[in-house]
Design a protein around this nucleic acid. Structure first.
Lengths: 221, 221
DNA sequence: TTTTTTCTGTGATCTAAATCACACTTGTAC
DNA sequence: GTACAAGTGTGATTTAGATCACAGAAAAAA
């Protein structure tokens, strides 16, 4: 677990002993928006999405947590309620540290605290980017930005091109971007026609023209 | 300065001695997006907006910093470049702590570190809310949410009603919400007709029907 | 004060994306 | 393997908000 990589063997063992382990099936909800936090949660296997349900019934996805990512640090320290629901995107195994244990860990190991701050900072920086791109209501720009964001986490050089193993269905992508599913479909089809991307099955996207994608994400068409 | 309220007299004096003081006139830019950070900056007097300029020339306002607020903690710790420009909304006096000084302060006074984390958490929580409300492209909802957000910071009981001293012009508000200025104007006029709000001059809004405003911010019209 | 500039409101028009509707495809369950 | 469900693509239509255009108001400068 990269987060605890800095801990020595003993500290690591002590920590492991304290943790609660849980498994969730695909589609199961780990915490519901408004619940009391179950604790600081590290996703060992699988992945999850964090979302809020809006007044009109849509779900707005806020974060995707890949394997080895974690959640709960922020709202464990400041809030008494969970600000979003977290649902497993695939079968998942997680480790949970209670609030008291987590705070003790931070107090004892300031390296871990620093890493948490850094992760928070990165998420903020992403949220700021999202705010910027949502400010413009340009669907293509938002899609291009999303693909570039996913590239780093889910992309892999596959032969000549970069392939992204999407963590979400088309519907999920639309909910992440705050777009209608149909709009996403149409725009992606259009990007495929233009030779920027190529879909390989439902959950894989191949980037054919990275430079063009970067342009789309920044320039006006 | 509330941030340093926990420091004892000595520590406070030592800190004050280290700080650089600067003044900015209304409209002056304190830091430009992309610059090297000037340091951790506390706004003693006046207020400021943090924004990014988008490809199409619009400015997307990300944060408003009122007096006694601060910025720079997040990107001082993780990034080498300033992620947004900060411009004084009124004549402003600021205190600046260099990166080294700031890090030393955090190391010595963990209470301050905790307060910073808390502030970061609050900003994240606001960004998440913004992401949710921007996901729905409903202008009225976004305006209502903004007014409620400002209510806490800039609102004051004035006789029977709550008055908000807006920190931004209509144009600024529109840039904060990612709306066209005209749309904001029209919607606010409509809300005024409906008796939800009342504008008192350009920079003051009176909330007449708080309950209705809260409904608008959450429910579909 | 007068002048100039910036800001704001409002009508007319345009447009990108939402919504509706439905066939098709893929995946899961039985 | 078949049956059912969920997910997806695509056309037709609607609509909220953007854009354009301008006049009046307010603020800043002279």
């Amino acid at each position: 677990m990269p987060l605890f990589a800095t801990l020595d063997r003993e500290a690591m063992h002590a920590l492991t002993a304290q943790m609660t382990h849980k498994t969730f099936k695909k589609g199961e909800v780990m915490v519901h928006e408004g619940d009391r936090p179950l604790g600081f949660t590290v996703i060992r296997e699988g992945s999850a999405k964090a979302y809020r349900t809006t007044f009109d019934g849509r779900e707005q996805i806020l974060y995707i947590f890949p394997a080895n990512d974690y959640f709960g640090a922020r709202f464990l320290l400041t809030e008494e309620k969970v600000p979003y629901s977290v649902e497993a995107l695939e079968d998942a195994k997680v480790c949970i540290l209670s609030k008291a244990q987590f705070i003790a860990l931070l107090a004892e190991h300031s390296e871990v605290a620093l890493q948490i701050i850094e992760a928070m900072a990165n998420r903020m920086s992403r949220l700021e980017l999202v705010m910027q791109s949502m400010g413009s209501r340009n669907a293509e720009l938002r899609i291009a930005s999303l693909l570039l964001e996913f590239k780093d986490t889910y992309g892999q050089k596959q032969g000549e091109y970069l392939e992204i193993a999407l963590p979400l269905s088309r519907e999920g992508l639309a909910n992440y971007l705050g777009l209608a599913r149909e709009t996403l479909s149409r725009k992606m089809a259009q990007m495929e026609e233009e030779g920027v991307i190529e879909s390989v099955g439902a959950k894989t996207i191949r980037i054919l023209d990275l430079a063009r994608l970067q342009e789309l994400s920044v320039l006006v068409e």
